[in-house]
Design a protein around this nucleic acid. Structure first.
Lengths: 196, 196
DNA sequence: GTTCGACATGTCAATAGTGACATGTCGAAC
DNA sequence: GTTCGACATGTCACTATTGACATGTCGAAC
């Protein structure tokens, strides 16, 4: 039951159409917190409207409807955010699951996966940092605070995962025993290592 | 389609019954990576058995059946873990969603929620560190490596979230303006702050 | 004036997952 | 010898979510 609250939250910051909300879920929100496609968003908006938590305040060109949160909607969102985390809430993250399952692999495979994770989290963090630094708003833009808090969270998550992957690599038994050159760093080290 | 792989992963480390697997999902695995109740685990084990990815190798007291991964199962798991992360995978985390939605609250409420998050992540990290430190295995226990990698990941995640919450608190406009005592730290600061 | 990509919303069948209910057994403590 | 909690597995109706399909419009570029 989180999707309705996600929508209320987005609309509380700024009125939007279903189409815009859908795009929002393609960004940080959908990448770290809660995925949703337009096929679940549109029906949910209609349900929220029926319950009086949002209203259509404007109609645009292509049947576009702009939604806004009502007082009741804002209250619902507030009480949801302020009430205890209950049992812990839904958690379902394929990436993290993959990290957990690495121990089930043979060391050579594990090393391969960990390296991929380390690389990916590293570049992802760097990218996010780039966006965070270049964003011209940073101050007053309508949903400025929103993006910043979320992006900063993402950066920290990626950094933590990156550090973890490096640590885990170090943890693995029997490192590949570097062939000859003890000083080789940043060598490309492609998919298949030379057998031994 | 992650649950079957989660089960294969657990069984690859150590054979187990559905009941034991269910308990596994009540620990770190279910808390950070992938939730599942026995009502989805038992049917899934049967499906995996039908597909020949696991087999029952032992029957115990109360109808208990111990499952083991087959060669095909191990291969399936391996190829899943080694293939590209595809589109990014399923992401659904209520806690993180709540963090994202904080910006939709008034500063006073936001501060309240952030403080709760900071507190929770702080104690959770400390607890995990405790377990991590006291665990007697740390070396050879059957799924020792498994728990350690996972727990370490959890610690880092909690730390990152904790630091983020503190940073976010600092980011919020208009701090509560401490009444009189400029040096008051660790005051209990109950649910309702004195109006202004 | 046409073309085409982005805009915009929707349905529906199928799959995944949950919560309530159901059933029974074993072992330890009393 | 009974009681009770943990062990152990299951079904089923309901809810949530996805993927495939459907439909149409607007605006810009050509």
């Amino acid at each position: 039951m989180s999707l309705p609250h996600a929508l209320l939250g987005l609309l509380a910051v700024q009125p939007a159409s279903g189409y815009e909300l859908t795009k929002e879920f393609d960004r940080e929100l959908g990448r770290y917190a809660w995925q949703a496609g337009h096929t679940s968003i549109y029906p949910e908006l209609n349900r929220l409207a029926e319950r009086g938590l949002v209203v259509v305040t404007d109609s645009g060109p292509r049947g576009r409807r702009t939604y806004e949160v009502t007082g009741a909607g804002r209250e619902e969102l507030r009480s949801w955010l302020l009430t205890p985390p209950a049992n812990g809430g839904v958690v379902r993250n394929e990436q993290v699951l993959r990290m957990f399952l690495i121990s089930a692999l043979e060391p050579a495979d594990a090393r391969r996966v960990l390296r991929r994770i380390a690389e990916h989290t590293g570049t992802a963090a760097a990218e996010l940092r780039g966006i965070l630094g270049s964003e011209p708003d940073a101050g007053r833009g309508a949903r400025a605070g929103f993006g910043r808090l979320a992006a900063e969270f993402g950066v920290r998550q990626y950094d933590a995962a990156h550090e973890w992957a490096l640590w885990a690599l170090d943890q693995l038994p029997d490192p590949p025993a570097p062939e000859a050159a003890p000083e080789n760093e940043a060598e490309d080290e492609a998919e298949n290592e030379p057998a031994r």
